[in-house]
Write a protein that binds this DNA or RNA. Structure first.
Length: 260
DNA sequence: ATGCCGGGTACGACCCGA
């Protein structure tokens, strides 16, 4: 079972790339971030014609998340609990089942948080506290749980091209790292790091020839509870997509699981 | 290099991303 996270940076601008990639790879579940579209504006028909069920949690212009799935949705949840005044669409979760098992996939677009002197950074840290409380509740269910998405977190020095350039950035600040460590300490593992110690990037900026110079960072993650980690076969970062025409600045990261 | 690119909104700049 191939389960993918991909920040597409605009569904309308990326539709042809997505359709081509879905036809090529036929992933089972694809979690999209930054659809930048309201639910009614999401181009459903062409994706549905490839066999995908679609659930979206959108907003006008910014943010927005969606899940495409060949399996039907048993349940869908939209939005991160804990702040009734938060109107940003950054979380959507689906529950799926096969003939012999059931599992939960939670798709997040975690706030960027820059600049750190602004209330955007406080929003990020508060959002991460809410995510950690939400995750604690999910772990009580003791079912395979995959928390994936664009975390806007660089986990370690090896996950960026020049760590000293990133020290003060909201993606790498000690305060952000602490919240991410608290999430890990609930019992979630970083799927990629169970398979390789090599530098592996998921994002290259559009500017400054970042792709050409391989100035990337790793900020898109699959975090697994023990029940999901036990069923993980492999992790693949689809780096080649960054070289396609009209690419997103993020590439898909895929986990292959033994749900059967 | 806190704006070099690229996408959004909405039709001319301006907001946003990481």
């Amino acid at each position: 079972m191939k389960i993918v996270s991909w920040n597409i940076n605009g569904i309308k601008a990326r539709l042809l790339v997505i359709l081509a990639w879905l036809e090529q790879e036929k992933p089972d579940i694809v979690c999209l971030q930054e659809i930048k579209s309201v639910d009614e504006g999401f181009p459903r028909e062409q994706i549905e014609s490839l066999g995908y069920n679609i659930q979206t949690h959108g907003q006008k212009g910014f943010n927005g998340v969606a899940i495409l799935s060949l399996l039907p949705f048993d349940e869908v949840h939209k939005g991160l609990p804990g702040d009734p005044n938060d109107e940003q669409a950054r979380l959507i979760e689906g529950v799926f089942s096969t003939s012999s098992s059931s599992f939960r996939v939670c798709n997040i677009y975690l706030p960027n948080g820059n600049p750190v002197e602004s209330d955007k950074f406080t929003y990020k840290l508060n959002w991460m506290d809410r995510l950690n409380r939400f995750t604690e509740k999910r772990l009580l269910l003791e079912e395979p749980f995959i928390l994936l998405g664009d975390f806007n977190i660089i986990p370690a020095d090896i996950d960026c091209y020049n760590p000293d350039n990133w020290r003060g950035d909201a993606l790498f600040r000690p305060e952000s790292a602490e919240k991410f460590r608290q999430l890990s300490n609930l019992g979630l593992v970083d799927a990629l790091r169970t398979t390789t110690d090599a530098p592996s990037y998921t994002f290259w900026d559009f500017q400054s020839g970042a792709w050409r110079k391989n100035n990337g960072i790793r900020i898109d993650h699959l975090m697994l509870n023990s029940q999901a980690a036990d069923l993980l076969n492999s992790v693949k970062i689809h780096k080649d997509l960054r070289g396609w025409d009209k690419p997103s600045d993020h590439v898909p990261i895929e986990g292959d699981f033994d749900f059967s």
